[in-house]
């Protein structure tokens, strides 16, 4: 059974609330979901956000339709709503949202070795927020352009353009800094 067939089988069992299926889905999606949350929420809130996402997914699994998009994209869309609600709950206080451009070492620090890490991180944070989110969903969720579009409310073509723009911008920023 290939990966896609295996996933569809797991989703089918999840509709019947098979605990093994839900554990498999949780383990499969946790790394990407947690990383997405980590880039938007204070660290102590991330686990709760992912858990809340699965709570909602479990309650709504009966309404999930593959015709509307991928399962992974559907779950990332739920997490995105959870994060936005968290912002609202916090009154959009800055202290509840990590400063992505802080001096704390971030994931991009490890993109390249040593001295270029800070440059790469700074470049990533200079992307337009919408473009950055497109890249994060493409990267962390491994979502295709159609799925990302469903999550953020854009057409697939617009997502591809945003991705190309963001990658080009990253390259330009890093190139400029190297000169």
């Amino acid at each position: 059974m290939d990966d896609e067939a295996s996933l569809q089988s797991t989703i089918a069992r999840a509709r019947d609330f098979d605990p093994d299926a839900w554990e498999a889905l949780y383990r499969r999606l946790h790394p990407g979901l947690h990383a997405y949350a980590r880039r938007r929420l204070a660290a102590p809130m991330c686990d709760d956000a992912v858990s809340e996402t699965f709570t909602r997914a479990m309650e709504a699994i009966g309404r999930f339709s593959p015709r509307s998009g991928s399962f992974d994209g559907w779950v990332f869309g739920i997490l995105r709503n959870v994060v936005l609600e968290s912002y609202r709950k916090a009154g959009r206080h800055d202290h509840d949202v990590p400063d992505l451009a802080s001096e704390e070492e971030g994931p991009l620090d490890r993109l390249v070795a040593g001295e270029r890490a800070a440059e790469v991180r700074a470049a990533f944070e200079q992307l337009a927020p919408d473009d950055r989110e497109v890249l994060e969903l493409r990267i962390l969720g491994r979502l295709d352009a159609e799925a990302v579009g469903a999550v953020v409310g854009k057409r697939a073509g617009a997502v591809r353009m945003a991705q190309a723009r963001a990658l080009s911008r990253l390259g330009d920023l890093l190139g400029e800094r190297q000169r």
Partner: peptide, 11 residues
């Protein structure tokens, strides 16, 4: 490039 970035973003 996206796949390479994934490993880094996941930490």
């Amino acid at each position: 490039l996206l796949e390479r970035l994934r490993g880094e973003l996941l930490g």
